[in-house]
Every structure is written in structure tokens, then in C-alpha cells.
């Protein structure tokens, strides 16, 4: 599409003048486009019958009367962030942060928490599609950093018992932020990227707590009892949002 073709496209339905008219007369593509536009006119004339404006349905009026004021969009991520931070804090305090945890792992945990808080805002903001997509590799890098920072450990007889306790911490800490996140997602139109980013971020609550508590650096332990539950919880939340009805179709 040349710049002149683009100008012809912009002027569709309006008379062309001078150079643009000369271009359109000699350009096969522009003639095709003008012809298609004209053919669609027949459709429009049938559709364009003017009728008196419709009255506002009673359902809409009663909805407005029920909610004369509305909250701005940012109250959702703020509330979710507050619940998430509180649960992480409770988890770290209740489980007694392990003194032997390396600082690199704590920093990775804090980074993950910070990225998740940003993720809540991006997932629930009316726009910011690009920033939303850009957060996925950041989350991936932080998770990788968390795995790398975990202290080296050898296989022991308590593999399953230790793993189950980590699994419980992961699930119990993440459930409330996930449920709240899914509910907030239903307030807008279903969007696959939003609906993936928010559960990914909300389910890190348990991972962050474990960054301050779990000394098991065995890759199998980290994959099976830390990362797998995080992925499973996120997938379940995504499915729940996909199936739930939307309260509104706003972006």
C-alpha cells in the first residue's frame, strides 16, 4: 500500500481531487477498494432507516439508581495488593523466617513480590497491553533467579514430608489472592493475557513466603512442590475466569 493508496483509503466516500484522483484512476488496487466501498453502500441504505431514539430501558435506570457513584479502576489492584502483602507478611511471620536462608533468595522473593504487585495493576488497568506482555519474561527471570538462589541440598528421606508442607504453604497462602483476583477479573471483559498474568502474580504469594522459609534447594523439590503448584493454581484460576460470566464487557 503506497502513501497515495493510503490517502485514497482515508478519503473513501468523499470526492477526490487533483493528484489523488489521477492516482486512483490509474491504480488497480485503489479501484478495487473504491468499488468494494460502493458495493457496501447498498447494505448501509437498508440499515440506515431513521427511527425515533429509543427510551433508556428500565433495567439500566435501576442499575444507575442502585449505584449512583462508582469506584475508579485502581481500587481493585490496591485492594488485591493489600491482601497479598498482608498474607505474605503473615506467612513469613507465622512460619518464622529461617535465619539460614541466603540473602540472594530473600532478594529474589522480594523482587517476585514487587513484580506481582506491579502485575496486579497491569492486569487490571483499562489499557497497557504491551506492559502486560513485557511482565511475563520479568516474572520468568525472577523465578529462575529464585531457583538459582536456593541453597544446594542433597536428597534425604523426608523428601515427601517436607514437600507436602511446602505444598500446603503454597496453596493456602495463594488461595485468597487468587480468588479475589478472579473475582476482579470478572468485572471486565474476558481477556486471555490479563487472565493469565493476574493468577501468575497472585499465586506467587506462597512462593514468596517459601523464599523466606524453605531451605530445600533440591531441584526436584523446587519443581514439584514450589513451581508445579504455582502453575496448577494459575491454570485453575485461568479456567475459572474463562468460565465465569462477565459482570461488564469494559476493557
Amino acid at each position: 500500500m503506497t502513501p497515495q493508496c493510503q490517502s485514497v483509503l482515508e478519503q473513501l466516500g468523499r470526492p477526490l481531487s487533483g493528484d489523488l484522483l489521477a492516482h486512483a484512476q490509474g491504480c488497480f488496487e485503489c479501484q478495487q477498494i473504491q468499488r468494494s466501498y460502493e458495493l457496501l453502500r447498498s447494505q448501509r441504505q437498508v440499515a440506515g432507516a431513521e427511527v425515533a431514539p429509543p427510551p433508556v430501558p428500565e433495567r439500566l435506570i435501576s442499575e444507575i439508581r442502585a449505584q449512583p457513584k462508582t469506584r475508579r479502576w485502581w481500587w481493585g489492584p490496591v485492594a488485591l495488593g493489600a491482601v497479598y502483602s498482608l498474607l505474605v507478611l503473615i506467612g513469613v511471620v507465622v512460619l518464622n523466617a529461617n535465619e539460614s536462608i541466603p540473602w540472594s533468595l530473600r532478594i529474589a522473593g522480594l523482587g517476585l513480590a514487587l513484580a506481582s504487585l506491579i502485575g496486579f495493576a497491569l492486569a487490571l488497568a483499562p489499557r497497557s497491553r504491551r506492559a502486560r506482555i513485557a511482565l511475563f519474561p520479568v516474572l520468568g527471570a525472577l523465578l529462575l533467579g529464585m531457583l538459582m538462589a536456593a541453597p544446594a541440598a542433597e536428597y534425604n528421606d523426608h523428601f515427601l514430608a517436607d514437600g507436602i508442607s511446602c505444598l500446603l504453604v503454597e496453596v493456602l497462602t495463594s488461595l485468597i489472592p487468587l480468588a479475589l483476583g478472579v473475582w476482579l477479573l470478572t468485572r471486565t471483559a474476558f481477556n486471555p493475557i490479563r487472565s493469565l498474568l493476574l493468577p501468575f502474580c497472585a499465586a506467587t504469594a506462597g512462593l514468596v513466603v517459601l523464599c523466606f522459609h524453605c531451605l530445600h534447594g533440591l531441584p526436584a523439590h523446587l519443581l514439584v512442590f514450589h513451581l508445579l503448584p504455582w502453575l496448577a493454581l494459575s491454570a485453575v484460576a485461568w479456567l475459572a475466569r474463562a468460565r465465569a460470566p462477565s459482570y461488564s464487557y469494559a476493557p
Partner: peptide
């Protein structure tokens, strides 16, 4: 009707600097 119901319910998500029609 669901479209206008969404306008009512999600009016807090409307960016006042943005155009209404595309929204």
C-alpha cells in the same frame, strides 16, 4: 443492552482523557 449495562457498571474504568466512541 449488555453493552450499555457495562457502560453503567464500568464507568469508573473510563479514562476521562480518552474518546468515548471507541471505548
Amino acid at each position: 443492552q449488555a453493552t450499555f449495562l457495562s457502560v453503567v457498571r464500568a464507568r469508573g474504568r473510563f479514562d476521562r482523557k480518552a474518546r468515548f466512541r471507541p471505548w
